[in-house]
């Protein structure tokens, strides 16, 4: 019943090979098999967005993916965005704008925004709020997160 399957994935540019049960969620694979606990487990049914990662460059709920499905895929998690000593650009914007309080939802927001900055219009607050609408934060009231994304979107505009 619980035969294990070998998969090889790239996570933040490093290759990992593991034997896993097919029923293992991608969230649990990242956290328990690879020790990458930056990806947080919130609702485990695709509502809260805390577990969002990038799968081949696009955001995905890692609680709605089986690890076995990602064999050969390129995954990015919050650990690839920066370190405590050297924050990534999105993380720095969150810090500058007080875009987090308890921080539980933050990894999901950061990875969602990483996708949105690459692929979506963020020209006004309506578009920014739509881009963030799949992630739930119970601390900030979202205003400070919107402020952070507004700054990131402006920088991106300058690069265009």
């Amino acid at each position: 019943m619980n035969e294990r399957t070998e998969i090889t994935v790239s996570v933040n540019g490093l290759s990992y090979t593991r034997r896993i049960e097919p029923r293992m969620l991608l969230t649990d694979f990242l956290r328990h098999e690879l020790g990458l606990t930056g990806t947080h487990v919130g609702c485990e049914h695709g509502v809260c967005g805390a577990c969002t990662v990038l799968l081949d460059g696009r955001s995905a709920r890692s609680c709605l993916m089986l690890a076995v499905q990602t064999d050969g895929a390129d995954i990015e998690t919050v650990e690839g965005q920066g370190t405590v000593e050297n924050l990534g650009r999105i993380q720095q914007a969150f810090r500058d704008h007080h875009g987090l309080q308890c921080g539980f939802c933050t990894p999901g927001f950061v990875m969602t925004i990483a996708d949105m900055l690459r692929h979506h219009n963020l020209d006004n607050d309506e578009e920014i709020r739509e881009a963030l609408s799949g992630n739930i934060c119970r601390c900030t009231g979202y205003e400070h997160i919107v402020n952070a994304v507004r700054e990131l979107a402006k920088e991106r505009g300058a690069l265009k």
């Binding site: 695709g46 696009r58 955001s59 969602t112 799949g134």
Partner: peptide, 9 residues
């Protein structure tokens, strides 16, 4: 339809 991340899949 849902949210952008869900639409990706």
């Amino acid at each position: 339809v849902a949210h952008l991340t869900v639409r990706n899949r």
